[in-house]
């Protein structure tokens, strides 16, 4: 126990205060924390749905929970059931085999709900789709292409995979938009 406590003290606080500035969002964690409080009472709950990704985006979504990004420090946490969630994070070009599961998960999420599409494939269909584009269909025999072909999407976070900082920005952007609805 002594060693564990010593290591915790030695490690110190790694959490980085600010996200890189982005003009289109113009938000800081401190202000956002206030907005989260306003909209979701300080506790935004997220359910991840991997709808067919290569697992690259999942690695970065794991990383937003590490000590450097510490998403939970902003009052945002991942939950085990869509019925407990305010937001769905969806990754992958939606494989046809996940289409029904994704729709059912969306239906099971109570209103008001937000959807953030994470990663190039979720935004456009990515490498897996012959006709990928942000507005296009991006379908193939095995995929439905972008997430927005299957369920309504609020925010898209591009990148292959997007960095943890970008994923957090996407989540925070979605919340700030919700406030003004």
């Amino acid at each position: 126990m002594y060693q564990i406590i010593k290591q915790i003290i030695k490690t110190g606080i790694k959490t980085e205060a600010a996200l890189p500035p982005d003009d289109s969002m113009r938000l800081t964690p401190a202000r956002l924390q206030q907005q989260i409080l306003d909209v979701f009472g300080g506790a935004l709950s997220i359910r991840l749905v991997d709808a067919g990704s290569c697992n690259g985006c999942e690695l970065e979504i794991h990383a937003v929970n590490n000590a450097y990004y510490n998403l939970e420090g902003l009052g945002i946490k991942f939950v085990a059931s869509p019925r407990h969630a305010d937001m769905l994070l969806v990754t992958g070009p939606v494989s046809r085999h996940m289409e029904v599961a994704l729709k059912r998960t969306y239906d099971a999420t109570p209103d008001p709900k937000l959807v953030v599409a994470i990663g190039e494939c979720a935004c456009t269909g990515g490498m897996f789709s012959p006709t990928n584009s942000l507005g296009g269909k991006g379908e193939s025999y095995a995929t439905c292409g972008s997430v927005s072909n299957v369920i309504p999407v609020d925010v898209v976070v591009q990148g292959c995979p997007p960095t943890p900082a970008a994923i957090m920005q996407g989540i925070l952007t979605a919340i700030s938009a919700q406030k003004n609805l």
């Binding site: 029904v100 729709k103 937000l114 025999y141 925010v155 938009a177 919700q178």
Partner: peptide
């Protein structure tokens, strides 16, 4: 050979960006 998209979406709402 492929099944059509099970439920084609109505026109998309603008992104909340």
């Amino acid at each position: 050979s492929r099944s059509p998209l099970l439920n084609p979406l109505p026109p998309r709402a603008p992104l909340s960006n």
